[in-house]
Every structure is written in C-alpha cells, then in structure tokens.
Amino acid sequence: MTPLKEAGANHAPMPAWITWLLATACGLIVANIYYAQPLAGPISTSLGMSPQMAGTIVTMTQVGYGLGLLFLVPLGDLFENRRLVFCALALDIVALVAAGVAFSPVMFLVAALFIGFGSVAVQVLVPYAAHLSPEATRGRAVGNVMSGLMLGIMLARPVASLVTQLSSWHVIFIASAAIMVLLGVVLWRALPQRMPSPRPRYRELLASMGHLALTTPILRRRALYQACLFAAFSIFWTVTPLWLASPAFGLSQGGIAIFALLGVAGAIAAPLAGRMADRGWTRAATLIAMLAVGIAFALTRIDASLVLLVLAAFVIDFGVSANLVLGQRAIFALNPAHRSRLNGLFMATFFLGGAAGSGLGGWAYAHGGWPLASWLGIGLTGAALLYFATEPRRRPL
C-alpha cells in the first residue's frame, strides 16, 4: 500500500470507499465503550455489585478511554498510524474477552478500563481522515466519519440490550472481540500507511501536550463545551435504562433496546454540522446544539412520559453529535503536525466529563431518581451556555 503524504500535499477529496470504511471502523470500535451502559443493572446483579456501584461500570470504561486519549492517541504524531491502530485493537480484543468471561466485579472493572484504553484506536482514525482531506471539505469528511462514530455509540445500547434479551450479557463482549479481529485484518490490508513527519520523541510529545493545552484557546474552549454536554449525555444514558427497567415503566431489555434505537436518528447531526462548519456557521450551530440538549432535559421535567423521553433521547443525541463535529473541525484547522495531540487533549477532556457524568448519574438516580438526574443535566448544559456567552465574537471557532 502506498504511504500517505502529509496534509497539505494532498488536495484530492478522500475516496468515498475510505470514508465509509473509516466511518464503519469508528462505529464498531467506539461501540465497545457503550455496550455496558444499558447493561449496568444485569451486570451489577450478576457480579454481586451494589446499585450505587452500577454507574462505576460505565465510568471505568470512560476513564480508560480518557487515559488512552492522553497517552496513546498522541503517538499518532510519532508512529505509523495503521500500525498504532492495529496494536490498540489487539489490546481491545484481550480486554473484551476478559470482560466476557468475568466472574467478579474486580475482573470486570479492570477489563472495562482496558476496553476503554484500547478503543482509543478510533481517535487515531479520525485525525487520519482529516489528513486525507483538503481544507475545503475537511468538515464534511470529518462529519461523515464522525457520523459512523456516533452511530456506533447510539447503536451499541440497543444491540447490547437485544443480545442480552436473547442470550446473556457475556455474549456481546465475546462477539465484539471476534468483530475486532476481523476489522483489524481489513484495516491493515485496506488503509494506506501514514508516517508522521517530523517525529519527536515520546517524552517530548507528552511534554508538548501541556504547552498545547495552555497556548491553544480554541482547544480549551471547544473541549470544555463538549465536556459539559457529554457529561449531560452520559447522565441521560446511564440513568434512563435503570429508570425504564424500574416499576415506573417496567420495560424489558428488549424494550430498552427499542427506546435506545429510536434515539439513533440523532446521528444525522454529524454530517450536517460538518457542512455548517465548512460554510463558517460554527458559532450559530454551536448555540443550537447546546440549546437542544438543555431543552431536551427540560421537556422531561414537564412530563416524564415515555413519548417525551424518546424525543429527549433524539434531541440530546442530535445536539451532542453536532457539537462534537464542530469542535473537531475547529481543532483540525490548526497545525496538522499536532492533530493527534490536539485531538487527544480534546477527546480526553470531554470523555473525562462523560465519566464524571456516568458516576453522577448512578449516584443521582440512587438518591433522587430522575428528577435529580435531569436537574444535573440542565445545570451542565447551562454551564456550557454561560461559557459560550464569553466567546469572542470576532474569532471563528
């Protein structure tokens, strides 16, 4: 396979088949982080965990993902990208198998941590897509690939619930390990090599991340926007499966799967947001995305019916998907040589927000049910809007 030239040398649009391959790969890989989210109840019961610890199942995966973003993803600016993805997938496969055969809480939680760590392969592929794309269509390309990622996040929940309904929660992790083996082979054979240039040492690479965080206002702002929204997103999707399975609704895992599936349509926001960013409408699109999430939580405070919960799921997924693409489009417009590090910092910041949201969601549901959880979601969205109000109007983000 011909090595890929650095960004700036490539002016042709990314071939459609590579776009679809990267989008599919991103969706399949990132789904590993979310299979456990709707299964927190069955997994915690099976392994003898307390209800208060249910949120920890998702939190451990997201913490592992955050660590991988900080320490593994920056290697995309140092090592050949295809090889790095393959190594991360190998770790993911081992962790998925361990989760599938877990017989104790400690074993599962350690496996969950490494599932998250290995799944950061997806965040090596997203900057890779940006390198393949010319500036004029970079937002569209990233949006298309991110639509695959968001579909993976959203479909993971109904798929996991449905598989568990038909068999056992163990099966979803073993099946995903087999899929990762096949995907690794396909990516290795199909993708062109990309060797970064120049190539700093790993120690210098990590040290430079602190400098980038301190000296890149766009990065900090976009990362904190998304951290607030993703924390709210995680609260919603940690709490609603527990609530829907409770006597208040009495849904089975199959019913929860259908509920989650109805929210998948929110992924259409990713390519739309990419096109808006390419046209210079980032500020307006960001405001719309934030308001959408806040309004969705507010709707459930008016009437916590199943219909309004479905509508809220769609709107929250729409807003978070849109804001994610807008943020990545903004940071990928910066120095191409720093893309993996910038993306790692961006994703680590907001995924740590997501991990905090998952933990808060489990605690809130245990102590105040949906009312407390929804108020937390509204508060986090309000914090993002307050920070957005301080954004300099003359600086496009």
Score class of each variant (00 low, 15 high):
Met1Asn: 07
Pro3Ser: 12
Ala9Arg: 15
Thr19Cys: 09
Ile29Tyr: 01
Pro42Met: 10
Ile43His: 05
Ile43Trp: 02
Gly55Lys: 09
Thr59Lys: 09
Leu67Arg: 07
Gly76Gln: 07
Asn81Val: 14
Leu84Ala: 06
Cys87Ala: 12
Val106Pro: 00
Met107Val: 12
Val120Ala: 01
Pro127Ala: 07
Met146Arg: 06
Leu149Ile: 12
Leu155Ile: 14
His170Trp: 11
Val171Gly: 00
Leu183Ile: 15
Trp188Asp: 01
Pro192Trp: 07
Gln193Ser: 10
Pro198Gly: 03
Tyr202Glu: 03
Ser208Leu: 08
Ile218Ser: 06
Arg222Phe: 03
Gln226Asn: 15
Cys228Lys: 11
Ile235Asn: 03
Trp237Cys: 02
Trp243Met: 13
Phe249Thr: 07
Ala257Leu: 04
Leu261Thr: 12
Gly263Pro: 01
Val264Lys: 01
Pro271Ser: 05
Asp278Ser: 05
Ala285Leu: 04
Ala285Met: 15
Ala285Lys: 07
Thr286Pro: 00
Ile295Trp: 08
Ile302Lys: 02
Ala312Met: 08
Phe314Leu: 15
Ile316Glu: 00
Val320Ser: 02
Leu334Gly: 03
Ala337Asp: 14
His338Ile: 05
Gly344Cys: 04
Gly344His: 08
Ala348Asn: 02
Gly354Asn: 08
Gly369Lys: 08
Pro392Lys: 14
Arg395Gln: 14
